[in-house]
Amino acid sequence: MVKLEDTNTKNNRNEILEEGIKKGIFGSIKGREIDRVDYDRWMGGPRGPEKITFKDGSAVIFKCDIRHYWMADNPDTAIREAIVYQIDKVVGLGLVPKTMVIDDTVGNVRYDGSVQEWIKDARDGYQIEKFTNEERKDFERLKVFDFVIGNSDRHLGNVLFTGDDKLHAIDNNACLIIDKNEDILSFSDSVIIFFSRNVIHDMRHIVELIERFYANKDTILNLIDKYIHDNTELAKVMVESRINYLYNMLKRDKPFPRKYREWRKGLEEEVQNILRRKK
């Protein structure tokens, strides 16, 4: 798996470089020697995901910034991919492969979008029966993570595992409100199923993740405010209300609701609390 490092590290190896802490989510593949590029088609568009394999054998998956190829009001999905990686780092989840926004020209080809570490020798989550105990815990953590960021496209095809007690959550651009008309209270039924079938208060790995979300809430909201340019305020309200809801339910030391409408009611109350504070 290709390593991505800060530019202040002293090395000359072929690696994707983060362009310093101040620029945060941005990086570069300039100076890399490309061995080959494998193309795919994406949603019938003019440019699909591209697997870029470098001379040193490492690889990344490149996704174009779709606003350059479709309607101008499309969300900046490249930034969303990178922000999700940053949020993963903030809460110490460790499941999202390193992801950066790039705008490079290599040869005569422009790469404007996101790059993410390619996970070698991985199998997808449709083989969930082969998960180790630690991988199952990661999968449970991922349910909470996706709920908070509003990921509407998590399926077993974009959950990878390599049999070494580690999951990898790829393809994270359908999150943080990608449509101004999106219902910020909606979420996957799988969240209800998970929380209703388990005594969350006894699941230390879930409790710790919720507490880390709450402790780092301001940092996460600042990331969204700094980098997300589409539906920013909606995204912030959605994320903050979900973090508050999970944390407050946890501290009440009561079972989580078993019905979808009860979750929506609780989330709506948190949303209204946030909006009142902003007035």
Rank of each mutant, 00 (worst) to 15 (best):
K22L: 14
F161H: 13
Y126S: 15
S152W: 13
N198L: 08
L156A: 09
I192S: 03
L142A: 09
F195D: 00
V237D: 08
L95A: 08
I66H: 08
V91L: 12
P46R: 13
R197G: 02
K137D: 10
D88C: 11
Y85S: 00
K23R: 15
T9K: 05
M100Q: 13
N244R: 05
Y85L: 03
D179W: 15
I193G: 06
F145V: 03
K217Q: 12
R258T: 08
R242L: 07
E18V: 12
S186F: 04
K265T: 09
N14L: 10
G150N: 04
K279T: 04
S152I: 14
F161C: 13
N273R: 15
L223W: 01
G94I: 07
I177M: 13
H168I: 02
M203V: 11
G20S: 11
K278P: 02
D73H: 11
F187A: 01
K137Q: 15
R154W: 05
Y39D: 04
K22R: 09
L142G: 03
K98M: 09
N158D: 05
D183C: 04
L209D: 06
E50C: 08
N158T: 11
V239I: 13
N222D: 13
V159E: 00
L209W: 04
I184W: 07
A59I: 04
K278R: 11
G150W: 03
V109E: 13
L17Y: 04
K217E: 10
N11H: 10
E15P: 02
D218F: 06
